[in-house]
């Protein structure tokens, strides 16, 4: 006798609405990740932020597939042309398509935001854990160094580092990442100090768990939410910082497109070609607003006092 696996399937997953399951099942509804997601989804501005960020991420990822001209291709017959059917957002001072440069520029901005925050998290979080968990002279040294770096304004520090490292997008990302590191050290340190005092960490000590295990199992998961919120908000700051450095000529180098360098060129042609300045600025504003809204929404959703 042949088995009939197809009809023997117990359920039809496609017909089940996961939201209904979460709402109906008290156990699932009480799970923190579901609660956070539900809260986040009800936060309209956070959803708007998510949509904005998602739009720019898709634009950056699928840039090579879009039917737009090469962002570096010049056309001396179409210099500083106003927006038209051929060039939706107009052309720049050497006839390059502004829309194309805007789309490809999203790659530089988003990459700078994510990579520099990645650098800041990669250095800042372990240092913050070391300072907060071990205290004593380890904390003393790390905290004093953090305070010293925090005393130098973020952008001045990034400019100085970018100047000494040399102008390029990679160096700008390193400069921004290193400049943002102290914020993560300080945040992580504070979180670790408060988590360390919790009963479950003391209990883990009492049953003889090793320090790396305690850090991995109990400390790290508990400090993650505020770090995630800070990372989202810092991406916004990093994108503005990259645009600022590129605007000053210390970031992405021509002819590669970046929103900051587009604005740098555009300021020389304000009266003749205002569209050159308008679009990159709007793009920076929208993506930064997106990350800020997303960060604010995440903060509200992850804040235990809000539940």
């Amino acid at each position: 006798m042949m088995a009939q696996p197809a009809t023997a399937q117990p359920a039809t997953p496609a017909t089940i609405d996961p939201q209904t399951v979460v709402a109906d099942d008290p156990v699932l509804a009480a799970r923190p990740e579901n609660r956070v997601w539900k809260k986040f989804r009800s936060h309209k501005s956070a959803m708007l932020g998510g949509i904005l960020v998602g739009f720019f991420v898709l634009m950056a990822v699928f840039a090579p597939l879009l039917p737009i001209p090469d962002p570096t291709a010049t056309d001396w017959g179409a210099v500083r042309k106003a927006p038209s059917a051929a060039h939706w957002l107009g052309t720049d001072e050497i006839g390059r398509d502004v829309l194309s440069r805007l789309v490809w520029g999203a790659r530089a901005s988003l990459m700078a935001g994510v990579v520099s925050v990645g650098i800041a998290v990669a250095f800042g979080v372990p240092l913050g854990i070391l300072a907060g968990y071990f205290g004593g002279w380890t904390d003393g040294i790390i905290s004093r160094c953090t305070e010293a770096l925090l005393a130098v304004p973020f952008l001045i520090l990034a400019i100085a580092l970018a100047a000494f490292l040399g102008p390029s997008l990679t160096n700008a990302m390193i400069a921004i990442g290193l400049s943002a590191t102290p914020v993560f050290v300080r945040l992580t340190r504070g979180q670790v100090i408060s988590v360390k005092a919790e009963d479950y960490v003391e209990g883990a000590h009492a049953i003889g768990l090793s320090t790396p295990k305690i850090l991995r199992r109990y400390v790290f998961p508990n400090i993650l939410p505020p770090v995630l919120v800070q990372a989202t908000l810092t991406i916004a700051t990093a994108i503005i910082a990259e645009a600022s450095l590129s605007f000053l000529g210390l970031g992405q180098q021509p002819p590669a497109p970046s929103w900051g360098s587009m604005l740098n060129t555009a300021k020389n042609f304000l009266a003749q070609a205002p569209w050159m300045a308008m679009w990159p600025g709007i793009a920076i504003f929208l993506v930064v607003l997106g990350f800020n809204l997303l960060g604010d929404g995440l903060r509200d959703a992850l804040d235990p006092r809000e539940h």
């Binding site: 645009a243 604005l263 555009a266 300021k267 920076i284 504003f285 930064v288 607003l289 800020n292 604010d296």
Partner: peptide, 14 residues
């Protein structure tokens, strides 16, 4: 929030 998100160099240019 818009004030925080607007790049001040672009605002200056505009």
């Amino acid at each position: 929030l818009s004030g925080l998100s607007i790049p001040n160099f672009w605002l200056g240019i505009m």
